[in-house]
Design a protein around this nucleic acid. Sequence first.
DNA 1: GCCAAATATGAAAATAATTTAGATAAGAGG
DNA 2: CCTCTTATCTAAATTATTTTCATATTTGGC
Lengths: 287, 287
Amino acid sequence: MDILARIQNEQEQFSQSEKRIADILLNDFDFAVNASIVELAERAEVSPPTVTRFCRRLNCQNYADFKVQLAKTMFVGARYLNPGTRSTEPVDVAEDIVTKAQNALYLFHDAFDAAKAQTVAELLSRSGMIHAFGSGGNSSMIAHELHNRLFRLGLRVSACTDYHMQMMIAAAARPADMIIGSSFSGRNSELAKAFTLAREVGATTIALTQSDSLVAKAADHVLAVDLPEGNNIFRPTSTRFAYLALVDILANLAAYQNPSQATVTLRHIKHQLVAHRDEDDRQLLGD
Amino acid sequence: MDILARIQNEQEQFSQSEKRIADILLNDFDFAVNASIVELAERAEVSPPTVTRFCRRLNCQNYADFKVQLAKTMFVGARYLNPGTRSTEPVDVAEDIVTKAQNALYLFHDAFDAAKAQTVAELLSRSGMIHAFGSGGNSSMIAHELHNRLFRLGLRVSACTDYHMQMMIAAAARPADMIIGSSFSGRNSELAKAFTLAREVGATTIALTQSDSLVAKAADHVLAVDLPEGNNIFRPTSTRFAYLALVDILANLAAYQNPSQATVTLRHIKHQLVAHRDEDDRQLLGD
DNA sequence: GCCAAATATGAAAATAATTTAGATAAGAGG
DNA sequence: CCTCTTATCTAAATTATTTTCATATTTGGC
């Protein structure tokens, strides 16, 4: 957890002096991150030792350490904590979206369970057939993305975003098959049903979703993505960025399971593209 | 430009002592960001004043300021600059991907032309019909994403990833229509042809692509995304994150063009989803 | 190759920043 | 109202950083 979030959490337990310090940190980040301990103390109408103690209280070694922690949250906390900018100026909108996206990536990474991801990657790389499920704008993008990333590794994979097809595919699955599905809310009951059905026929199910949700409970393996959502209805879920990163990570880990095969397949695809399109080797894979 | 990038740029002009300092900064970020000036000086086998002068040379007021700048680059430069981590450990892979994604977002935002985006958003919001074009794994995702984000605003939009269809659609376009297409490499000559055709029939074309590329040259309006690509073939283009952010920004700006209509459409979709799915109002829009 | 000027670097001193220690004040519980 | 605990401050000690000045090194001209 980053330091600004911690400050917000513990705000109630702070003493008067500490509250004044916390206030400045939360409201005038730019000042705080550049201030010396004396300047910060003065502004909070507090003595420097109080600031030192405040830092220790937050598990920092000393003021310098505290400052570093603070500066590190640049993209993480900062504007996110006080969402005052409800501006519609293009510059502000861009900054808000980029900040939230970076934030989502940070929070996702912070809570990321690498061991579990590795387990899932191993399963994927050894599977018979992989079916990627997801519905709605966001999760269907993830399903297609899984397809797009995994087929390059020489894995057998297909994406399906249609509930009825999902049920039929689940019913027809074999024990070596994997059903990997995502649901941002965790409340896609159709997906949960497909998981249940797939498990009944002996296939393995993997959920990319909120932990402890309906979908999570229905799956064998869960890769949790738990992020708070903003409340401006115009702002699409920055959570997509976290899911996309998760897909990338899984694809990479799966590739490393059998690097030689993956390399061969990738080279082959690339060669095809280059030969077909133009002579330029700088052609990106799958533009 | 962030401080680590600046250090890398100016590396040649550094003196011996400065080079030793720079080396530590670039290779052991974690040490440097936590070190005092004396520790850093010792490690670089240099005197503290030399470190101070080094900081000034980089336009920092003093060592403290320098440390803050350094800590701020947490997500920006850091490991990206020295891609030494060719590790296949799950933890390292995850960190690498997340860092590169955040980096891509940062670099994109840094070069972002808000005014041009606003112009494009205005065009989109006033258009007759919007056609989103893109081919290959990445750009087709962007095309679908444009569809997914724009239809919610009450705009008439469709996505097309098939070259032949794209040509037919372009030929059938009317003057009020918009063709918006993406190409990560800028070398999708089919897309360029579709743009040319669309312009001949009087439609407006918008390219999300590398500046000065083939595709960029074929379009009326260009929203440039110029990012360096990593060289590990297993690592998919983190550029996708930048494109996704660009789509989000465009959709938001378009929404603000006519907020009342957009709000109404969004509410309507949300209501439908909630009524159809479950009673829970926390259902995310388009899961 | 030698010299002057410019530049780079370090040692020591000066300054500034931070922490510690001890003292005092404020508040809680009896 | 007193005692104990906690919070806070002042002042001293420590530590970190910067300035100053002396020395060394490099650069470019002859």
